[in-house]
Design a protein around this nucleic acid. Structure first.
Lengths: 337, 337
DNA sequence: TTGTAAGCGTTATCAC
DNA sequence: GTGATAACGCTTACAA
């Protein structure tokens, strides 16, 4: 066969030369329906017959055609992850966890990136509705109403976002990690703590802000909230000026990625971290431990989030339990000077 | 709808409540086959009829069911990427590129991880054969024969591996990047250059070694080849002892990931890079630029590799052209002291 | 326990 | 230009 997917007509309408249950049936001298039964519910078929059928299947190197199976059943054994930006290291963790858990349940994972607007994402989601048994919305740009509408059509879970209603979200327990982070800063003598938020539309960015505000309120310090910032290294780099000019002696950023940008751009202009400014991120992405200084961060169990999302979809056993977060102490935080 | 994928029987055998071409046909008062035609080859249908059909489709918010379409056509508009280890940052780049290009052609990407043995990978691949129109083997552990067998059944392309025969591989032009790397080291005064190879089974690791040996041969220096090493940070960390004891004053590693490990473990034991030892990696993965010192590396166009793989699958226009590699100069290399 | 037959939502081959 | 009709490969009542 050539390497091109769309090359040449398939002969006789037979799309692939792969063996079917009909081939097995002929070989084992039974009806195709019996083959189907033997394959799916061996208990409902005579043991000897099952044996014969299995032998034939083996001999023909038969694999059920999941597409053909999906048509009558409506089940594809496929789960889809929809992400706005596959570039984001946060989604790596999620995808990885989801892929592993899916594989464990013998499901396949579909990845769709919406890159652009929520509009594009909605289109992608609607397409996926047919091909997947469930949807995982990871860094979605859809609005609550759109998500709820989708959830009415297919099992769906969101990650790091709660849209309320009947929609299940895999959410972090921010209090623990954020509490520890703020406590840590206060113990180091910081009294003015900055928060560098992500995009205005990010649900989780606002939750992180709230958690910080609450933790600070309980601890005789104050919060300065900066302007909304792109959750990228570039975004962080662009924010350095504002951070430096503010009275904050420590800044918690919406995510590690932008703090990596702060670190890099800061270093270029002689900013001493943590001497001049202490920095904390969120997520604990790959790479946040080998910057200079390595980044102190509130770890989100990304892998577990992906796993949990799949498990929720597959078993519906959603305990509603929040994923634990924890402070990972590294060297980007130090005493106020 | 509940959140569980496998919950409750679907009523009446009708798997989904989604509108079908039959619904459109009724609404537009034509035969379903005409609807299908209008949707696929509007030219072959009366313009007015097409209009009516489109309006009806719009009104019903119709989306073709890709599963149902795939059955008679044998085409799923889905491409599968098979990777051994989704943890590897190298595959991020590849997946990202593949996902983008696939989306651009209105194809969906399936991710499968084989984690374990080549055996497991073979099973995964055979399953995928039914669901995908083409296969991309990214960090495969399959042997040449198995790959060629798969390629006989479905369009297939390998990345960073050449199995010969009719199988297309997306391969790098190592000479340029490796030549520059060796040239750079020699110019810095290094005369004994080490190569820290990846796993013994890695095809591309051997090519990298050959490229280095060839480049060194041309430049009055010599190569020391270390033992095969796991292509992970742990692998690199474990190799530090050997590197330090060897006469090599500069080491090129199979990939960035392991060099990150060398860097971290080396720093712990007071190894000065590049003072004591110059280090070069391969790939230029995310994160290799924010270590201390940032890693000099031979960049592989990972994103482009993913893109190219998809394009090759979709258009069969494989020019056989090798992807350019280049030396990215950072601070992990310095003069021999 | 097994066979018969209808149906899943499309596409494709015929006629008309 | 459009309508019947038969696939595609599998599942699933319902009968036997």
């Amino acid at each position: 066969m050539s390497s091109a997917v769309d090359e040449g007509p398939r002969p006789g309408g037979r799309p692939s030369g792969a063996p079917t249950i009909y081939d097995i049936a002929r070989l084992a001298d039974v009806d195709p329906s019996t083959v189907s039964r033997a394959l799916n519910r061996p208990g409902r078929v005579n043991a000897k017959t099952v044996e014969r059928i299995m032998a034939a299947a083996e001999q023909l190197r038969f694999r059920v055609n999941p597409i053909a199976r999906a048509l009558p059943t409506g089940r594809t054994r496929t789960l889809a992850v929809l992400v706005a930006d596959i570039t984001n290291p946060v989604v790596f963790g999620i995808i990885r966890g989801a892929a592993q858990e899916a594989a464990a349940h013998d499901y396949t994972l579909l990845i769709a990136e919406s890159e652009e607007s929520g509009e594009r994402e909605a289109t992608a989601a609607r397409r996926l509705l047919h091909s997947a048994d469930g949807l995982i919305l990871a860094t979605t740009r859809l609005d609550d109403a759109a998500i709820r509408a989708l959830a009415r059509e297919k099992p769906l879970v969101t990650i790091n976002r709660d849209v309320g209603g009947a929609v299940v979200g895999v959410l972090p327990d921010l209090a623990a990690g954020v509490g520890a982070a703020v406590e840590h800063l206060v113990a180091l003598g910081h009294r003015v703590i900055g928060y560098l938020p992500g995009p205005a539309t990010s649900w989780i960015s606002e939750r992180r802000r709230e958690a910080i505000e609450e933790a600070v309120r309980a601890r005789d310090a104050e919060v300065v909230v900066f302007g909304h910032t792109a959750p990228t290294r570039e975004g962080g780099a662009a924010a350095v000026d504002a951070l430096v000019r503010s009275p904050a002696t420590a800044v918690i950023g919406y995510n590690d990625l932008m703090m990596l940008g702060v670190l890099a751009a800061g270093a270029e202009r002689g900013l001493d971290v943590p001497g001049d400014l202490s920095l904390i991120g969120f997520d604990d992405i790959f790479g946040s431990d080998f910057t200079t200084p390595p980044l102190t961060t509130v770890r989100m169990p990304l892998l577990e989030a992906g796993r949990r999302a799949v498990r929720t979809l597959l078993t519906s056993e959603n305990t509603g339990e929040l994923l634990p977060t924890e402070l990972v102490l590294r060297a980007s935080t130090g005493p106020r000077t």
